[in-house]
């Protein structure tokens, strides 16, 4: 049974050795094994090709494969580290690791910066923050006058853009989140601390013993 299971795993595109992934992330080997169960479920939800498409990612997040969401798109793009248009298992584990309670704070700060630096210019620009605010308002069906949006943007950039050049660089972002730590709450998933309890089924598929021998 172990051999059969191993063969199945190696046939999954992007499958990486759990021992190697554990050494590169905040997860233990058994936690990587548990994440593989979650990964298999998500990656086979629309097309069973062993890769997570954007549609499958949206389905897992919203239980609705057609729901378009700017922020989910940004998260997907960052998880798709190899820029292949899909998330493979290695990408999935390494990206989720950033959200582990024990992951280094610097990794969380960098990830959040990239999330908001939508065009990858190296700066979070006012038009990007405005676009995200408008997307949030649409998502939550909140209405806010244009003037109110501009007031929020003025306040945000007055607080974060210390050199007042109209854009937030990485150093400014680091200072800003140090003063506003609640902004990084979204970068930690408490679930990840005890994932083997969340996915007990991994126990029946674990390769940990055979790797150890």
């Amino acid at each position: 049974m172990g051999c059969f299971e191993s063969k199945v795993r190696r046939e999954v595109p992007g499958y990486e050795d759990p021992v190697v992934l554990a050494s590169e992330t905040a997860f233990s080997v058994s936690e990587v094994e548990a994440l593989f169960e979650l990964y298999k479920s998500i990656s086979s939800s629309v097309v069973d090709d062993g890769l997570i498409s954007k549609e499958e990612f949206q389905l897992a997040l919203f239980k609705n494969r057609k729901k378009e969401n700017l922020f989910a798109n940004r998260i997907f793009d960052l998880f798709d580290a190899k820029r292949k248009g899909v998330i493979d298992f290695g990408d999935f584990v390494k990206s989720l690791s950033v959200f582990h309670p024990n992951a280094p704070l610097d990794e969380k700060i960098d990830f959040a910066f990239k999330l908001y630096d939508m065009d990858g210019s190296g700066f979070i620009e006012r038009h990007e923050v405005k676009q995200m605010l408008i997307a949030l308002l649409c998502e939550s069906e909140m209405k806010l006058a244009d003037e109110a949006i501009e007031v929020i943007l003025d306040k945000t950039f007055s607080d974060a853009d210390v050199n007042q050049d109209g854009k937030i660089d990485l150093d400014e972002w680091k200072n800003f989140v140090a003063k506003n730590p609640s902004l990084l709450k979204i970068m930690t998933l408490p679930y990840l601390r005890d994932i083997t309890t969340t996915f007990p089924s991994f126990v029946f598929h674990s390769e940990v013993d055979e790797i150890a021998t």
């Binding site: 998500i42 997040l61 922020f71 998502e139 939550s140 007031v151 929020i152 974060a160 709450k185 979204i186």
Partner: peptide, 26 residues
Amino acid sequence: ITPVTMNAFELISTSQGLNLGNLFEK
């Protein structure tokens, strides 16, 4: 608290699209 007293990132971080916890719900 009115939204205009908050900074944009506080508001943005409330987006459902940023809540990866949903990935773990069956």
